[in-house]
């Protein structure tokens, strides 16, 4: 469900971009997905396949996913560590005073696009 919402926003963002930049067709979309963004990639790809056929610009496009490592910062000892492995407790000093620095985002890194012919 969460994935469907994100895909809808992604499709809308790309539709708008295509219009602004005179793009006829998008060949590929590269997304950077954080490890703790809460996005399940299998579901995300399914949702994308379902949605892309409803958007002419996206119909032939391929989705490429890159993972962004999640990193947590410990306020007690000032070190950073891998969130997925250790969770909220700092592995160096066992403190729980930690917060996520990165890894919850979902960013459109780049797209491959074909422009409309001149004059169209």
């Amino acid at each position: 469900m969460h994935e469907m919402g994100i895909v809808m926003h992604l499709a809308k963002t790309l539709d708008e971009l295509a219009e602004e930049q005179n793009i006829a067709k998008i060949g590929s979309v590269t997304l950077q997905v954080g490890e703790v963004s809460g996005i399940m990639t299998d579901l995300f790809v399914d949702a994308w396949d379902y949605f892309k056929v409803k958007h002419p610009v996206l119909t032939e496009s391929q989705l490429k996913l890159e993972t962004i490592k999640a990193v947590t910062y410990c306020e007690a000892c000032g070190k950073t560590y891998e969130t997925v492995r250790f969770g909220r407790t700092c592995p160096y000093c066992q403190s729980g005073e930690t917060y996520l620095v990165m890894g919850n985002q979902c960013i459109i890194k780049e797209i491959e696009a074909e422009e409309n012919e001149e004059g169209q």
Binding site: H9, I111, A113
Partner: peptide, 15 residues
């Protein structure tokens, strides 16, 4: 095809 770098959040249109 040309590559367009975006570095834009997926929710940019919602914003």
């Amino acid at each position: 095809m040309k590559v367009i770098e975006l570095h834009k959040s997926v929710t940019a249109s919602n914003d």
